[in-house]
Simulated assay, not measured.
Amino acid sequence: MATALVTGASSGIGAEFARQLASRGMDVVLVARSIDRLQQLAEELQPQYGIDTTVLVADLTQPQDVERVYTETEGRGTTIDLLINNAGFGDYGEFAKSDRAKILSMVQLNVTALVDLTHRFLPPMQQRQSGCILNMGSIASFQPLPYFSVYAATKAFVLSFSESLWAENRKTGVKILALCPGPTDTNFFEVSGSPASNGNSQQLASVEEVVRDAIAALEKDTSNVVVGGFANQVMTTLTRFFPRDVLVQAVEQQFRPNRD
Rank of each mutant, 00 (worst) to 15 (best):
V57A: 14
V174P: 05
F242H: 04
V150S: 08
V115F: 13
M136T: 04
A22R: 06
Q40L: 13
S162A: 09
D36T: 00
K175L: 01
N232H: 04
V150D: 03
T236M: 01
S164F: 13
V29D: 14
Q203W: 03
Q202T: 06
V234R: 05
Q48P: 08
T79I: 14
R100V: 15
F148L: 11
L30V: 00
E43G: 09
V31S: 05
L238Q: 12
L60D: 00
S130W: 05
D260P: 15
S160H: 11
F17G: 03
S149E: 10
A96R: 12
R100L: 14
Q143L: 09
Y49S: 04
R37Y: 04
E252M: 10
T78N: 07
L45M: 07
F255W: 10
E43D: 15
T112F: 10
H119G: 13
S98Q: 15
E74S: 12
V6S: 07
Q20V: 04
Q249V: 08
Q20D: 02
I139G: 11
T53M: 09
Q127L: 06
E190M: 03
Q233W: 15
A96D: 12
V31C: 10
V226P: 08
A87D: 06
W166F: 15
E94S: 06
R256K: 15
G77E: 08
I84N: 03
V225F: 07
M235D: 14
G25T: 09
L30H: 06
L60V: 00
V66A: 13
P181R: 10
G131L: 04
A167K: 09
A217I: 06
A214F: 10
G25S: 01
S197D: 09
S192Y: 05
I84K: 05
V31H: 11
S34I: 01
N200S: 10
G8R: 05
I80R: 11
V107T: 04
T73P: 07
G93T: 11
Y70W: 15
S138N: 02
L179A: 10
I133N: 04
L83E: 07
M106H: 09
H119T: 02
F142N: 00
V227I: 11
A15N: 09
N169K: 06
L165Q: 14
D65C: 03
A214G: 04
D91S: 14
F230P: 01
G90R: 02
N135Q: 02
A167E: 14
D81K: 09
T154Y: 01
S105C: 06
A32G: 02
D260Y: 11
S194P: 05
L177H: 05
L82F: 08
V107H: 02
G228Y: 08
A250Y: 03
S138A: 13
G77C: 05
